[in-house]
Amino acid sequence: MMLFIGILLVACNLRAPFTGVAPVLDTIQSVLSLSSYQTGLLTTLPLLCFAVISPFVAQLEKRFGLNITLLTALVAIMIGILVRSLGWVSSLYIGTLLTGAGIAVGNTLLPSLVKQNYPDKVANMTGLCGLCMGVSAGLISATIVPLDMLGGWQIALGTMVILPLLGAVIWSKQLNGTTYQPKQIKTPSSMRSIWLAPLAWQITLFMGINSLLYYMLVAWLPTILTDAGFSTLEAGSVHGMMQLASALPGLFLGPIVSRMKNQVTIAIIMSGLLTVGLMGLWIAPLGAMLWVSCFGVGSGGVILLAYMFIGFRTGSTTQATLLSGMAQGVGYLLAASGPTLVGILHNITHNWTAVLLIATGLSVVMLISGALAGRLRSIELSDVEAVQV
């Protein structure tokens, strides 16, 4: 039971400490007199951490074992949140980097953690993890502005520390367990192989484009909404709804996927919902609550399917960690460039039409990648081919 609770608490820390900052970015920028570039870094730096660190997490796991590596990640998130809340410009960025590094490690190891401990329930357990990620992120996003009004942005951001604190306390109980032990793996050759597998690239594009689109809206949705006439408080609430909607697939996706022969149809449906949400924000932004709900459900479903694909399409936890590192490394490199490129494009066009149209086009590419990755296939690192199973 403690293992089960611990895994869910780990999941709660993989989104909220990062996405919860967006609704108070304008306040932080004003109080600390940050430029637009400096403010954008608060969104970009964690994504760069995800991109740079994810491909090397397999080596950390090999050296220290899964339990210690995860506990260290939770402690890094906890320290990062506290440092970020001190109120200095330097501490803001240092804390953001620490938080991003911790989340990067946890993100990469989560599929391996589920595959190792629940090999016959990958879909259901991944769904529960997604539910926890979405609910925790949604609650943080919906409450961060009221907390800012009551006690200031430092208090608002600092309250997030409860998540990694609880996670670290519970996960520390696993240090003497047998959940997962350090092992010898052929990391260099395996890493080369995984990067040559077509199926690995299909999963990577599916996850990567979703990450790009999701974090684009995490960073810019409040601004898009205020430009459309929403108040700051209303925009924060809609932002929170998007996060909560992303948790909904965790309620039903696991049982559905576990009964399917392949995941082609469900990948198309989830990607299609995301596409509808983006088109709705472009055509009728005043209906944002509906559109962000579609986007959130779709995006939440896509990330869960991507995590499931990592478990389904690999033959061992080692392969799962390597594929997870590849998919998340490339994915978050795309995501890291997204908010900045969106800002540049918006400055050129002075509207959100081009941004949302390009995002819609990318969502179609994601849909195709998901349909391909959803076929019943697996990655064989020995011959670097995707073979029918």
Score class of each variant (00 low, 15 high):
L41I: 13
P111H: 08
P55Q: 09
T19I: 15
L34G: 12
Y93K: 12
G87F: 10
N67I: 00
Y118K: 11
T143W: 05
I79W: 00
D148P: 00
N67T: 06
N67S: 11
S85M: 06
S30N: 12
D26T: 02
A104S: 14
I144K: 05
T96F: 04
Q29I: 13
I79F: 01
T43V: 14
C129P: 05
C49Q: 10
A73S: 15
A73N: 09
P55N: 08
I94E: 01
P111F: 08
I103R: 05
G100A: 13
G80M: 02
L60A: 12
T126Q: 13
S85T: 10
L47A: 04
G40F: 05
L98S: 09
G95Y: 11
M125I: 14
E61L: 12
Y37H: 13
G100L: 13
L47C: 05
L113Y: 01
T19H: 06
A16P: 08
M125N: 04
L92E: 11
S136W: 05
A73M: 05
V24R: 01
V24Q: 01
T108S: 08
K121N: 15
G80S: 10
V75C: 03
A58G: 03
R15G: 01
L97E: 01
Y118D: 04
I77A: 03
G20V: 02
S112G: 10
P55M: 12
S90C: 02
A104G: 14
I144A: 07
T27M: 00
S35M: 13
G127S: 07
F18W: 10
G102E: 09
L45Q: 05
G40R: 10
I79D: 00
